[in-house]
Design a binder for these strands. Structure first.
Lengths: 328, 328
DNA sequence: TTGTAAGCGTTATCAT
DNA sequence: ATGATAACGCTTACAA
């Protein structure tokens, strides 16, 4: 840690003998500057190791080249993979990203939004699927564009990037029905909450398995593990699970109890994170282009931030399935 | 997205009929203000919904209340858990965190540092264990304080928060020796690279198992899986692994090949992330207070940022062990 | 092509 | 206890 004061644009202009405006022009590559003076300025910049002060720039131009990224949980691999896509595209467009962990908690989300407003970020990517009505309203009224990534806006007003959850869960249901199970033996395990993601999943599931049961589970491993006993006792023979951690919990319960997977119990999960690939037996899953969801969302946001009009602001990316060893 | 211009401190002062200075005083709670006028100002602030512009504030005060967090990989649960601790303490002290994903890549790290310098963050937390000498130098010369979290500075100049890796790996070695293995049957699997974290681990391991072998493996699952075959062919019967993903890879290889764990092969991992708890058999591991490492690092940073002198800037937190089902 | 100067929204130093 | 006013470092009309 050293304390030499950074040189300013003024130092550069003085050294070269031109005005501030000229230096600004070459730094930002706009306006006409004679090639010769440009060279001189560039040289001075290098010599002084001048770097524009982002705050001053922001104040003057009201652009910060920062975006906010609200994320429910840093250790949720689904969101982490989305974030990788977001980060990659942000890098390309030179945006830096301010992280706001929300814990899916309405108060924390509001606080995060307020901070981002105060910091004058140019836009934000929102991830989360338990969005309160109040939050939704705040997001709509935000002073900068907001894009939902891997998260659905129940009112459909905000731009978003997702897969077709209804279709995915319907297909998953069909797959399970093939193995000669009674519909009452097939269940959907999903997280509770008002989030409409979960309602889309349910809708898709019931399209295919109208007589299927629906169980609620929190998003964590232990919740799945605990629920598994009830599942088994209720005579369920196959489940589609909305999140990978509870899917793993269910799998491990079955294994710990000596129940054979997939012979006696089948599982399809839906996020296809590292977790399900590393499980033994490896868990079958819907596959989502997670990196791309994040990347496309960020790309969309850059367009919005530059004031471009968007033709279709609800983008739906294709999903697939990988059947591994928890299905017959 | 709405576009009403935010009210400024000027609007507030005008409405109340006081000067800018007075408003600034009540907003920042410093300087003397008559209780009566303070109330009036507060009222106007509420009515106008005034919020200080962080950029202007930053420009004027040269404090941004932002910190940078450089992180090698968003999907590495070890760093994600450190980040949780960092984030939690940052929230308490009202810092917002700018995320910089480094991919353990020297160029990306340099770029990240430069961005953070341009943005004038007040400090930064650095995570990463393949830090180049050049980067180290840049970090030392940075205009703001830097704290290493779960990452060691080979030159020991920068503040850091860690566990005692030498001791931990030495103890792990002792534990494995107890089960009547020849030293040549015990190995350390660690990632390559100049990072000194890995050299501390090796040092600890060799303290306990002087005749032990050392294998190099990348940090990912597949690398561990691939290495496992060699391990087995070489007659290794027990390993200590530097990262959880390769540990899981090794475990799964053994399982896929019908090699009994822990009877024929024992594994101790070292980060104790979700991954190893969810594995079957659950993997024995060193346990690190990951959240606390992040939290303490951030707390240390706040002290540094406020100019406090630090008595001991190399903090070492206690580690333990959880012996689960991959050790006898 | 280049320069001048008025902001941008705060903080902070002096006065009063 | 409060007010003027000069920074902070840059962008951006408007002039020249």
């Amino acid at each position: 840690m050293t304390d030499n004061k950074q040189p300013t644009i003024y130092d550069v202009s003085e050294r070269v003998g031109v005005s501030l405006a000229t230096v600004s022009r070459v730094v930002n590559n706009n306006g006409k500057v004679k090639s010769e003076t440009r060279q001189k300025v560039l040289k001075a910049i290098k010599e002084l190791n001048y770097r524009p002060n982002a705050m001053a720039k922001g104040l003057a131009s009201s652009k910060t080249t920062m975006i906010g990224m609200v994320m429910p949980d840093l250790t949720d691999l689904y969101y982490a993979e989305l974030a990788q896509g977001i980060d990659a595209v942000a890098k390309i467009y030179k945006y830096s990203v301010t992280l706001a962990v929300s814990d899916e908690n309405p108060e924390a989300e509001k606080a995060a939004l307020n901070t981002l407003i105060d910091k004058h970020v140019d836009g934000m990517i929102y991830m989360g699927n338990k969005t309160s009505g109040e939050m939704l309203k705040l997001l709509e009224d935000s002073p900068f564009p907001v894009v939902f990534a891997g998260s659905v806006d129940p009112q459909g007003k905000l731009p978003s990037v997702n897969i077709n959850y209804v279709k995915a869960f319907s297909q998953a249901g069909e797959m399970l029905k093939k193995s000669d199970l009674d519909e009452s033996e097939v269940a959907l395990v999903d997280n509770p909450g008002e989030g409409s993601l979960s309602s889309l999943r349910q809708q898709g599931f019931l399209n295919a398995v109208s007589g299927g049961k629906i169980y609620e589970s929190d998003d964590d491993y232990q919740a799945g593990y605990n629920l598994a006993q009830h599942l088994y006792e209720d005579g369920i023979k196959a489940v589609i699970v909305g999140e990978d951690e509870p899917a793993l919990g269910i799998l491990n319960y079955m294994q710990d109890k000596g129940i054979k997977v997939p012979d006696q119990f089948q599982i399809i999960s839906s996020n296809d994170t590292k977790l399900v690939k590393m499980a033994r037996p490896a868990i079958s899953s819907v596959t989502q282009p997670k990196f791309d969801i994040g990347a496309v969302a960020m790309r969309l946001l850059t367009k919005l931030m530059s004031g471009q009009e968007i033709d279709d602001s609800k983008v739906v990316l294709p999903h697939e399935f990988v059947m591994r060893d928890t299905t017959k």
